[in-house]
Design a protein around this nucleic acid. Structure first.
Length: 414
RNA sequence: CGGGAUGUGGUGUAACGGCUAACAUGCUCGCUUUGGGAGCGAGAGACUCCGAGUUCGAAUCUCGGCAUCCCGACCA
């Protein structure tokens, strides 16, 4: 894409009402627009990153055997009454609305009820199990307090997967596999090093569940990391029994304490939803049994915020290669012809390139490039050409070097 | 939902109860400039969040509302 066509602009200063680093950088660089507290729109650059994150998640989930689908945001009251989650006394963050005829509807804050109900149409035998589905879509929660920029909003995006199994054992197989699938995702997103599988309480369904916590100053959680096992425990769930069950060091001070942001979680749901919504199958003996369910979430926009938090520096955003809005930023300094030539060549090779062809001064182009945070920068100027080629610099490095045009042939493969 | 704070051109800030609400940045035009957010000049851009009240006089004080941020509670 040519930057002269990019309608968003960078800003020198962040709005005074944003204190979170992620929101400050994302707004300054033109990735998101704040609609209201806890509600952000994605602008072209931000949406590219969002989709790159989504696609990595998709890829890994598809490999795990899950199938992507999409559910509705408008939800019928009746389904939620079956699990006793309609009442505002039980779930206090519903957004509810009405049809013109007065029928009450809810705007989905999660989708367990919906998917369990949908699957009643397709499950009747143990031979239908197991199977896995997922969706990536917005969820609406009437949070009493939005905070941390794009990391905790009232409208946000989640990837949620659901597993449907005939028994606990079958369920455990996929559940355990998801730990690896999730860590693969976070590794590909560039935060594998700082993301820890974290023991948490399992709610009413099972004794324990697992969260995926990324070490991050802007996080809302505190975790204790056992460096030896690589496993962490959520500070909220620190108790003698859990510590013993997982063999954690009993002396808290010997563990590494970090602030962290929850980027994913995996839950065993048991048969709570299947029983309530009638998601049953006939087992080998022809006896009716409830399906054993699991749910597995990843916060997509939260990840985008976490990446901005974890990698952003004093000059702006620093995107990992795997999710950057573009792989290469070409900056032309009065050498548009040569720059367009390289641009066309790279585009032909399938590289995502942003070409700064604006009529702007070099200083501004460099500053904008740093702020936007594309991993590779190529400067084409009379100076670089005199030195025999193009000037190349990584966003994460301070020094640039001259690279000959032909050397680019082997570079920039995502 | 409890507690605290703040609302002034697009953005960031200033202004004692008293002149035509100031400065920077961004934007437009002209000239000059061209390797780290250029310089000079000329412009456009505000019912000071909304509504009441106090006062001769309100951006400024009081009350109410709305909005935003922060701490806490909540986070299926």
């Amino acid at each position: 894409m040519k930057q002269s066509q990019l309608f968003t602009k960078t800003r020198k200063e962040a709005p005074a009402d944003e204190t979170a680093k992620n929101a400050q950088l994302l707004i300054r660089a033109g990735f998101v627009h704040k609609e209201m507290a806890g509600v952000y729109s994605f602008l072209p650059l931000g949406w590219r990153v969002f989709n790159n994150i989504s696609n990595i998640i998709r890829d890994e989930l598809n490999k795990s055997g899950a199938l992507e689908m999409h559910m509705s945001t408008l939800q019928e009251k009746e389904k939620w009454q079956k699990t006793d989650r309609w009442s505002d006394d039980v779930v206090d963050n519903w957004f509810k609305t009405k049809l013109v005829n007065g029928t009450e509807l809810g705007l989905a804050f999660t989708h367990e009820e919906d998917i369990a109900n949908i699957m009643t149409n397709f499950v009747s035998s143990y031979k239908d199990l197991p199977f896995y589905a997922y969706h990536i879509q917005n969820k609406l929660r009437n949070e009493s307090r939005a905070k941390s920029g794009v990391m905790r909003g009232r409208e946000f995006y989640m990837k949620d997967s659901y597993s449907f199994s005939k028994d606990k054992q079958q369920h455990e197989e996929y559940y355990e596999k998801m730990k690896d699938v999730y860590m693969n995702i976070f590794t590909r997103l560039g935060i594998g090093e700082q993301t820890f599988i974290t023991v948490s309480n399992g709610g009413s369904f099972s004794k324990y569940s697992y969260e995926f916590q990324t070490v991050c100053d802007a996080g809302e959680d505190v975790i204790y990391i056992d460096e030896k096992s690589g496993l962490a425990i959520n500070a909220d769930d620190w108790n003698d029994e859990t510590v013993a069950d997982f063999g954690f060091e009993t002396d808290k001070s010997k563990l590494r304490e970090e602030k962290s942001a929850e980027v994913g979680d995996i839950y065993s749901l048991g048969t709570k939803y299947s029983e309530a919504l009638g998601l049953m199958f006939n087992d080998e003996e022809g006896k009716s049994q409830p399906v054993v369910m699991g749910s597995y979430g990843i916060g997509v926009n939260r990840l985008l915020g976490v990446l901005a938090e974890v990698f952003g520096d004093e000059n702006g955003l620093v995107w990992p290669e795997s999710v950057a809005p573009f792989q290469v930023h070409i900056i032309s300094i009065n050498e548009d012809e040569k720059a367009i030539g390289l641009y066309n060549e790279l585009v032909k090779r399938g590289v995502d390139v942003l070409l700064d062809d604006r009529d702007a001064r070099p200083g501004q182009k460099f500053a904008d490039s740093d702020l936007i945070g594309i991993p590779h920068r190529i400067t084409i100027s009379s100076r670089s050409l005199e030195n025999g080629g193009y000037e190349y610099k990584k966003r994460t490095e301070d020094e640039s070097k001259i690279i000959l045009p032909e050397e680019f042939n082997s570079m920039f493969t995502r």
